[in-house]
């Protein structure tokens, strides 16, 4: 056992990296759920993004194009979900599950020729001056651009939802779709766009795993990250800024357990690997139990199909 080898600054810096894929996926899902749609297919869209992004990056040699391909892949898969749920009025829970099963199959089919190949590396982007601040510099400002993109998207989503007219409309559609429809808003069109955004974000998150974190293609690379992202949305009470907190918490747990594994702590590896999932359950319990707070914060029309009768 060698706990002295764990440096807190490095730990916090890798926490930022580890939380990025979950953060991206959860952010997309947050917007989808604020629009009143529950998409349980995050895991499927993430892993599809992971492989389409990887394939694009290998083909073009450019990680940036890879991330673009990942967003496109995730969004393309989410179109299936959107058509089924919005226009064919299928059950959202069942369709989301189907999307996950389908995405896992699709990803391993596409990924067949890509095993054992290394992805072109994503360059680190040190922010000048800021990255030289002791302690804070390495933690916050010496990462690749996707980490910054994730943070910017959080800020952007917060601004969009709380400060713009379109954001208000989106929230109205999520809270009460019948009222929003009566006011003349296009419920299905808005939800379609939200689902597309969710798919693209999940794709980005998946690609961050296959292009930066791992960085190669292995089957089941997401290992439940999509489901953890879903849990974080509940944890955050559907608010973008709290999402950041949730993602950091889970990033922190997964980084910590990896460090403890490396430090040969006398706990079985399998028990340490369980930690992120167990903590997710624990957090769900804590957040749900506070006088039913989590449920009160959920968008009013979440998970209900919308059918305009007139």
């Amino acid at each position: 056992m060698d706990l002295g080898g764990i440096s807190p600054i490095l730990l916090l810096a890798s926490l930022m990296v580890a939380s990025t894929p979950i953060l991206l996926a959860a952010l997309g899902e947050l917007v989808v759920e604020r629009a009143g749609v529950l998409n349980l297919g995050v895991e499927g869209m993430m892993i599809t993004g992971a492989i389409t992004g990887f394939a694009t990056a290998v083909a073009t040699g450019s990680p940036a194009l890879g991330f673009l391909g990942a967003a496109a892949g995730g969004a393309a898969l989410s179109v299936i979900f959107a058509v089924l749920v919005l226009w064919l009025k299928s059950n959202q829970v069942a369709t989301g599950l189907a999307l996950t099963l389908f995405g896992l199959g699709l990803a391993s089919l596409i990924g067949q020729g890509y095993q054992g190949i290394r992805a072109p590396s994503t360059a680190r982007l040190d922010i000048p001056l800021l990255s030289d601040i002791p302690a804070l510099g390495p933690i916050l400002f010496r990462h690749d651009w996707v980490v910054y993109l994730g943070l910017a998207l959080v800020a952007g989503t917060w601004w969009f939802l709380s400060r713009t007219r379109a954001g208000l409309t989106l929230r109205a559609v999520g809270e009460n779709h019948d009222a929003a429809h009566a006011l003349g808003y296009h419920v299905l069109r808005l939800r379609f766009l939200a689902i597309l955004f969710g798919g693209a974000c999940a794709g980005l998150g998946g690609a961050y795993l296959s292009l930066v974190r791992v960085p190669q293609w292995t089957e089941g690379v997401t290992a439940g990250a999509g489901w953890i992202a879903l849990a974080i949305v509940v944890f955050a009470s559907w608010r973008p800024l709290r999402l950041l907190l949730g993602a950091w918490l889970f990033g922190g747990i997964s980084v910590l357990q990896l460090n403890l594994q490396a430090a040969n702590v006398p706990v079985p590896v399998e028990v340490l690997s369980m930690a992120p999932y167990l903590v997710t359950i624990l957090v769900l319990v804590l957040i749900s139990s506070g006088r039913g707070r989590a449920r009160l914060a959920a968008p009013g029309s979440l998970g209900q199909p919308f059918h305009a009768s007139r």
């Binding site: 058509v83 089924l84 009025k89 299928s90 389908f102 699709l106 067949q112």
Partner: peptide, 26 residues
């Protein structure tokens, strides 16, 4: 034929079923 193709096939079946359910309700 790759093993994953069958997994995809099974997922597809569920999609088609859910999509066609619209005919039962509407």
């Amino acid at each position: 034929l790759p093993a994953a193709a069958i997994q995809l096939f099974q997922g597809m079946l569920l999609f088609f079923l859910l999509a066609m359910d619209v005919l039962t309700q509407f």
